[in-house]
Amino acid sequence: MDVMDRIKQQVESAPVVIYMKGSPQFPMCGFSSRAAQALQACGIEFGYVNVLEDPEIFENLPRYANWPTFPQVYVNGELIGGCDITIELFESGELKTMLEEAIKASSN
């Protein structure tokens, strides 16, 4: 499968998906760690892709998303941002609402 198709399938595989360095349990980068912690603090289930274990994704996700860095957080298949934006949304309380709505919509 073409890598762009593979990414599209991944970002749409769950209502909330994070591409990060390492895993939520063992993050390998401070930015990835903070973004994953914000998702965890919202108390919802989310999928993750460890880009360090998948060089093809690591190389091509920036092009797919027009976003050059990791982590990247996707809600309903759309990029919401990297670490800074995820944390800002978390601190304003918007993130929790946004994620809960995405999960509710997907379970209907």
């Binding site: 930015f31 976003w67 050059p68 860095t69 990029l79 941002g81 990297g82 670490c83 800074d84 934006i85």
Partner: peptide, 27 residues
């Protein structure tokens, strides 16, 4: 939106992202 603002910053720095810049925190 914040996403678009960050993209503008990244685009302005496009050719030095990854060579000079490994990580960027943006406000």
């Amino acid at each position: 939106k914040m996403l678009e603002r960050h993209r503008l910053v990244y685009q302005a720095l496009d050719d030095i992202m990854n060579t000079e810049i490994h990580a960027l925190s943006i406000k």
